[in-house]
Nucleic acid binder design. Structure first.
Lengths: 237, 237
DNA sequence: CGTCATATTGACTTTAGTCAATAGAAGTGG
DNA sequence: CCACTTCTATTGACTAAAGTCAATATGACG
């Protein structure tokens, strides 16, 4: 399912069929990871970057006091650590949130792109920039939004990203994150996540089915969260 | 003072003198901005990226409720919005914190680099990646550190960045940010910033002189903040 | 000397965290 | 399919961190 990456990169600019072929031929191998397994440990200097093909992965930084902050969440089609091509060692760990399949792209292949395919290089830069834009939106949530809004905002973001990746199924998508993990994303304790989720359900904004999150009215949740999808640079699909 | 950018980019990999020349010739013009002036408004799609030559600038996102979150702070030598080359419109505003001089680099010049100078392209990608790494460290602070630690951490980061840029003067540096701005960086109210600063001073970790911040013992502040400079990718100077 | 911005303080409120117990659900081996 | 373990969710009682509001200083500057 490297196609998801091809589609994502073509959101930067339409790719020629040659360029698409280059992207398709990037993976050297694919690896499977179990739920909770570390894909790249913090401080490692991998010789390849990972593309998530299936599952759900996140990047996090562990603190000396035993807590951690999850700094990004990745769905299929995401280049999880493209930046490790230029910035090593990496400043965070990467782990699988659920059983996941990952394609490994050797850094030499990326170097080749930078040498020979400027338009594709721009697409890679675009992907890095999109990642950073998402970081910024998360910072806003962590710094200035209430617990309720943070969680609602995260769900809105995932709703649109899942939709873009073709993973939305009648107003809902698979999401197997527990409340501790949601807390590590939103900078909250799991107890407070629990209470905020209850409030969101009470208000009819979300419905949780086993491993699935349903958002019956995305406009209402967006309003509650102060969510504006502009930073995701979506395109009509 | 485009030299600061040349030096910064060569932290990725040594640049040839030709490549250095290319960087030096990037700016098309330089602009002056007054304290508080907006350099690029949120939602704009500039045709050039800004390099800070002198002063202090920050990027921020404004929220509907009137608050804002500052998402990055820039010192001379920083490419403030390199990403606007590939990701437009920009998702945040850029403003001068103090009177500042900014060089404008037309995006065509960057495109030229991507077409003809792969090693320099990698250096630009490195700069983008470094920006994102800083975003991530800020996320950790916003999500998981106390007010006291957040402020101490910010000061540690600035200490090392200033030192790298050659702007450190006997354990201190110029820093003209008021407590409201510090609050917008750290996700705190100005009142709480005030109290945390008092605690930091009380503990002998910092000293504030008019427009200057002095850190007599960086090791002690680093310990208090849980600061590890690895994410800044410093090099020996 | 007065004005404006900024810093400081006190009193009080709110949000979110902590701790500990209980309840549910999911998965496992027999 | 059942008993059992284990993880996850939920609840209550209490604490602590940070926010709010409003008043008062302080300081830079024209």
């Amino acid at each position: 399912m490297i196609e998801a990456l091809v589609r994502k990169l073509s959101r930067c600019a339409p790719l020629s069929s040659e360029e698409e072929g280059v992207v398709r031929s990037l993976p050297a191998e694919t690896c499977e990871y179990a739920k909770g397994q570390v894909i790249v440990p913090e401080g490692a200097a991998p010789a390849e970057s990972s593309v998530l093909l299936a599952g759900l992965a996140f990047r996090y930084k562990a603190l000396p006091n035993g807590t951690r902050q999850i700094v990004s969440l990745h769905i299929p089609g995401d280049f999880v650590d493209l930046h490790s091509f230029v910035l090593r060692p990496i400043d965070h760990a990467i782990a699988a949130a659920v059983p996941s399949r990952v394609a490994k792209v050797p850094h030499e292949r990326i170097a080749e792109i930078v040498f020979r395919y400027p338009r594709l290089t721009e697409a890679l830069m675009w992907d890095m920039a999109l990642d950073a834009a998402t970081h910024r939106e998360w910072m806003v949530g962590l710094g200035r939004r209430s617990a309720y809004e943070r969680i609602a905002h995260l769900f809105c973001e995932l709703y649109y990203r899942m939709r873009m990746a073709g993973l939305l199924r009648q107003d809902g998508f698979e999401l197997r994150l527990n409340q501790v993990e949601l807390g590590d994303i939103c900078g909250l304790s799991s107890v407070h996540v629990n209470r905020s989720l209850q409030a969101l359900r009470q208000d009819g904004l979300i419905r949780s089915e086993k491993g699935r999150l349903v958002i019956p009215d995305i406009a209402r949740v967006s309003a509650a969260a102060g969510f504006d999808p502009a930073y995701l640079h979506l395109i009509a699909r």
